[in-house]
Simulated scan of single mutants.
Amino acid sequence: MSGPRLVLATRNAHKVVELRELLADLGAGVDLDTAVVGVTEFPDVEDVVESEVTFEGNALLKARAVAAATGLPALADDSGLAVDVLGGAPGIFSARWSGRHGDDRANLELLLAQTGDVPTEHLGAQFVCAAALVLPGGDEHVERGVLRGVLDRNPRGTNGFGYDPVFAPEASNGRTLAEYDAAEKNAISHRGRAMRAIAPRLLPLLTP
């Protein structure tokens, strides 16, 4: 069987490459360049409004829509930053916390302003990612990945995006995620952990 076997519900080419690399490391036995594709390979599939109130809910929403539209197994993820003192916010609203979707600088500056008077010892936070696999027959599976750390009020690093410059993982010796290289980040990141957890469910779909 040639052609797509798994659709990643994203238009981000970097996420597709990252998933292929992960599956290759785990011994997937097919040509991953053709077997694992992004939703951009299906131009008629419409974007999904992320209207759920949890990471898991939004990931399932996207995966269900893509599986239904393509007739293929679909994998989706949703992630964000949860700050303890803010009751888990920005959470699912991380990408649009400032009111403008994807404005990393505005989101980061608003978060720092909101926590400006909070003592350092209370700046615990975690990155969360939910990965959802949905099969055309209706079977569903969800895994969660978490990376604990603390907020750092002094943004540092150029390798990350979003809130990476102000998030220092536990046992990082003060380095922010934006100061990690790609391999270091993938090894510990919330998304990497969620994808590695769900990967065993993906491998049977990619068996020759």
Score class of each variant (00 low, 15 high):
A131G: 05
R196Y: 11
H141F: 07
N159F: 10
T54F: 03
A35G: 05
G145V: 04
R193L: 13
T54N: 02
G88V: 01
A168T: 15
R196N: 11
S172L: 06
V83S: 11
T158N: 13
L86G: 04
G80F: 03
F93M: 12
Y180P: 06
A82E: 15
L61G: 04
A63S: 03
R144D: 01
L177P: 03
E184A: 09
V150F: 15
L22P: 04
T70P: 05
S79W: 02
R148Y: 04
R5L: 14
R196W: 10
P155C: 06
A28W: 06
F42N: 02
R201M: 04
E140K: 02
G192M: 12
R153I: 01
G145T: 08
P4L: 05
N154W: 11
N58H: 03
A187Q: 01
G71Q: 13
A194P: 05
G160L: 13
L110C: 02
S172C: 07
A76I: 00
V166T: 07
G71E: 14
G91S: 02
K62M: 08
E179S: 15
A95M: 05
L147E: 10
A130E: 03
L206P: 12
P155S: 07
R20P: 09
K185Y: 15
T115G: 06
A106L: 12
L111S: 11
L8N: 05
D164M: 10
D152W: 05
A13F: 00
H14Q: 14
V150R: 15
S94Q: 01
H190S: 02
E140A: 00
C129I: 00
A132Y: 01
D25W: 08
A89F: 05
L111G: 14
I198S: 01
L112D: 06
L151Q: 06
G87E: 06
P165L: 09
A178W: 04
L205S: 02
N107C: 12
T40Y: 01
R193K: 12
T115Q: 08
H122A: 14
Q126W: 01
V16M: 10
N107S: 11
R11P: 02
R64M: 00
V30P: 12
V7A: 01
R5S: 13
V37M: 02
P43Y: 09
V128E: 12
V16N: 10
V142I: 08
G3C: 11
T115R: 08
P4M: 08
V45T: 14
L81H: 04
N154P: 00
A9M: 00
N186V: 06
T176S: 14
G160D: 11
D152A: 15
G138P: 11
L203T: 10
R144E: 09
P136M: 05
R96G: 08
F167H: 02
A68P: 05
V66K: 00
A171W: 13
V36M: 09
V48K: 05
A171S: 14
E21R: 15
V142Y: 05
V17R: 04
R175F: 11
A183Q: 15
H122N: 12
P204T: 11
V166S: 07
P165I: 13
A132L: 01
A113D: 13
T40V: 11
D44R: 14
